[in-house]
Design a protein around this nucleic acid. Structure first.
Lengths: 163, 163
DNA sequence: TCGCTCGTCGAATAAAGTTCGGCGGAGAGG
DNA sequence: CCTCTCCGCCGAACTTTATTCGACGAGCGA
């Protein structure tokens, strides 16, 4: 993970479809080397895949929400099952398994608040293992286009630069 | 947005780097048509971009958290500023602007719990416009590889199939 | 200093993206 | 019911790109 790898990672997060030549020139190496570097990043598991980003609004899903769910019994099996079931729903954008009062947080995108109400009341609140379901409307959700390197580095790696 | 467009969207979300020929064959159209369809999806804003997905753990960021922040004064300006500042931090994976007790939810990935503590205490809790900061550890975060179409369709579009 | 190793390079080859003229089906108007 | 028009689809030609692979050279250990 030298500076070149970081530059490649940064650029591929911004645009995963730029040509290999373009990428190579931008980071200052030969195309064949860029190809090899990118392959290595994939092989090492740093890059897990390339995906098209879709705008939910253009698909008629303009309402987003975060749904907190408290699950009882609080067993590994129950929570992992719920996580997978929620992730498989077409409404779901993401699922967090969290500490705190609630066990799971589900990020969904739906067409309307009426749809959201029916979804929550008919699909979630009815389940008896969900002892508490709380819904929060999401006004805005932004994701950085790139997941940059942390300021801490070298010998201070894994430690905080804010201490 | 016919069935072919949906198939293209589904496949490109799974793998944004498959060849156009492969995509064309899979959805049953000519490569030139697949290219035109994909272009149209981009032009219409359905596809907003192509991005490499990066695994935070391989970059030494194995701890994830959700940080709830209550902001006062609760002005549009203060909240939008905070949203943008948080999104620009290297630790940040995503920012939600939400209803409820808190105003903003920040999803971060950091190297350790010690790093998280310093980040929260030194970078966030010190700000006087943040009147409440609560941190929740994320055990697991999963995202569906594809954002599928909702069951409701045709004349029932925008309405819930669960009513 | 010598020899080994590994990353890099660049040219050759294979494969893919891209363009564009023409074809054909669907729908509107007569 | 017929005909005209329009639009999307197709496929071959062309351009650009990805990919392979043998060789070079810097860095390092012996």
């Amino acid at each position: 993970m030298d500076a070149v790898d970081q530059a490649i990672l940064r650029r591929l997060q911004r645009d995963g479809r730029q040509t290999n030549r373009e990428l190579a020139e931008a980071v200052g190496i030969a195309p064949s080397t860029a190809l090899e570097r990118t392959r290595a990043l994939r092989a090492r598991g740093v890059i897990t895949g390339f995906h098209a980003a879709v705008d939910p609004v253009t698909l008629g899903r303009s309402v987003q929400a975060l749904i907190s769910i408290r699950i009882r019994p609080q067993s590994r099996e129950a929570i992992e099952n719920t996580r997978d079931i929620m992730a498989a729903l077409p409404e779901t954008l993401g699922v967090f398994v969290v500490t705190g009062n609630e066990d799971i947080l589900v990020h969904v995108a739906v067409p309307s608040t009426a749809y959201l109400r029916d979804f929550v009341l008919d699909r979630l609140a009815r389940r008896k293992e969900f002892v508490d379901v709380r819904t929060t409307v999401v006004f805005d959700y932004v994701q950085p286009v790139e997941q940059s390197e942390l300021p801490a580095s070298e010998d201070r790696y894994r430690r905080s630069p804010y201490a």
